[in-house]
Design a protein around this nucleic acid. Structure first.
Length: 458
RNA sequence: GGUCCCUUCGUCUAUCGGUUAGGACACAUGGUUUUCAUCCAUGAAAGAGGGGUUCGAUUCCCCUAGGGACCGCCA
């Protein structure tokens, strides 16, 4: 059975890159009718935070990336990691190293100063006697041997062990290090496919060595190229809009972000839009690209716009409510009802949920500051506006046809172009020059509110 | 510095050696529209450079250049 995993360390919010890795793992496992597991790598006690952990979990949930079983905490497996370190020691695949950190630091600095590459010299490798001082356990890596990583994305990557140091697997405080923990956990969890960022490529070699020493079956590796910022560097938390929360905050729909992430570094012919079922159905590992891709926020927004335009009214409204409740001032129930009924009009100019909120604000928050500032209203057009007011006061129920007729009449009577009367009217009714068409505004506000707003300015 | 990886329009990408190198976003122009948008149509826009292999290379190989990742008692 295919079992994949996503293994974030809770030292920061979930990143776009991490989200994509999680998505690929999720989609592949589901495509193969396998399992997708979440493993929280919380062994760095200083940097791991509960808040990041729950942020990561809720972000995955928000994106619809659902993991099987309960999440697994790496810290709970530490005793097993230590056991494996001890076993490797017994089997002489590892050794105790008594070098002091300061000592090694100095060696490293010296090497760097000379412009040389530094790796641990291995001077404790063949120590005969045990010392009664603190030690770390290092893996004894066979010299001058070529290790091949059969990578599903990168092809065969061959690396000579001379470039890999005898890395530490167990610290002097008896805590396991990353490569030990990750290997052991992957083994325990029966991970069949490791799909992760290609910053882990060298780790894969180290892990393969460890797997070989233990005689375990090596999982298949897929190292996907990293996502870069527009500047072409590895995405960091400081790049704006680089976390899923950044996207959420400005009103990106999870379905849109998911779709964007799916097509970043992966493709299926010319297909751009994938719903959840399709993404599971069509996803494969062989179509993953080999080159890094840049995060393009314009593309996220345009995909978001697509989903805003095409989602069913109820579904979109639900997303909207969730967004408003989390990030905006609460909107009164009666206004929400109006927004829901007119969503198809209000979403017209929107690329994000925030845009829908702003487009709707004239309904629940009539802001008049722009009206006077705009100088749109003068004695001349007050005449037309008054004509409009008079006519509209005569009707009781809104009808598109009626509003159009009234407008036509006003234009004809005063012999003016629409703009001369439409612009000030729109401004008075909405407090903005960018709003729906007049007939739509009247429909949204209702006849009474339209009259009330008009009367204040003529 | 060492090791490894990458390179098709500005961006995401398609191309299983033979294509007028396709699509999408962004951009430009025109049309629709009662503002602004939407929508529709059209357009401009790419194989890093140099060598091979081949009847034929974007595609396979080599070199160069450019970019990136990793090199912690972090994960």
């Amino acid at each position: 059975m295919v079992i994949t995993r996503f293994a974030p360390s809770p030292t920061g919010n979930l990143h776009i890159g991490g989200a994509r890795t999680a998505l690929f793992n999720f989609l592949y496992s589901k495509n193969q009718k396998g399992k997708f597991l979440l493993r929280i790598e919380d062994t760095d006690k200083d940097r791991s935070k509960k808040e990041f952990e729950s942020q990561i979990i809720s972000s995955l949930k928000w994106l619809g990336i659902n993991y099987d079983d309960k999440e697994i905490y790496q810290s709970e497996n530490i005793s097993k990691h230590i056991e494996v370190a001890q076993e490797l020691l017994r089997k002489k695949h590892a050794y105790k190293c008594y070098c002091l950190p300061e000592e090694l630091e100095q060696e490293r600095n010296q090497a760097v100063a000379k412009g040389l590459n530094y790796i641990y010299s291995g001077k404790c490798r063949n120590l005969k006697e045990e010392k009664n001082i603190p030690f770390v356990i290092r893996l004894k890596i066979e010299k001058n041997k070529n290790i091949i990583l059969h990578d599903g994305v990168q092809g065969n990557v061959e690396i000579n062990t001379n470039t890999i140091e005898d890395f530490i697997i167990l610290r002097s405080d008896n805590s396991p290090t990353y490569n030990l923990s990750a290997s052991v956990d992957d083994k325990i969890m029966n991970i069949s496919h490791v799909i992760r960022g290609d910053d882990h490529k060298i780790n894969a070699i180290k892990q393969i060595i460890l797997f070989q020493f233990m005689g375990w079956k090596i999982p298949k590796y897929f190292h996907i190229p990293l996502i870069h910022s527009l500047e072409g560097k590895k995405l960091s938390k400081r790049d704006n809009a680089s976390t899923t929360d950044d996207c959420k905050k400005i009103g990106i729909l999870p379905v849109a972000l998911r779709n964007y992430l799916l097509r970043l570094g992966w493709s299926y012919k010319d297909k751009e839009i994938f719903n959840k079922q399709e993404s599971i159905k069509f996803f494969n590992l062989k179509n993953i690209g080999k080159s890094p891709s840049k995060l393009d926020f314009e593309r996220i927004k345009s995909l978001n716009e697509y989903y805003i335009k095409n989602l069913d009214q109820k579904e979109l409204f639900n997303y909207f409510i969730i967004f408003v409740n989390e990030f905006k001032k609460k909107i009164e129930e009666k206004y929400l009802k109006i927004i829901f009924q007119n969503l198809n009009i209000l979403k017209n100019k929107a690329k994000t949920l925030e845009d829908i909120y702003n487009n709707s604000s004239f309904i629940f928050e009539y802001n008049q500051t722009l009206i006077l500032k705009s100088n749109l209203i003068n004695e001349k057009n007050k005449v037309y506006l008054n004509d409009f007011l008079e006519e509209i006061s005569k009707i009781e129920v809104y009808s598109e046809k009626k509003i159009m007729e009234i407008s036509e009449e006003v234009l004809k009577k005063n012999n003016i172009k629409f703009k001369e009367f439409g612009a000030p009217l729109r401004m008075i009714l909405t407090g903005s020059s960018k709003a729906p068409s007049i007939k739509e505004i009247v429909e949204i506000l209702g006849i009474n509110e339209t009259i009330t707003r008009l009367k204040r300015y003529i």
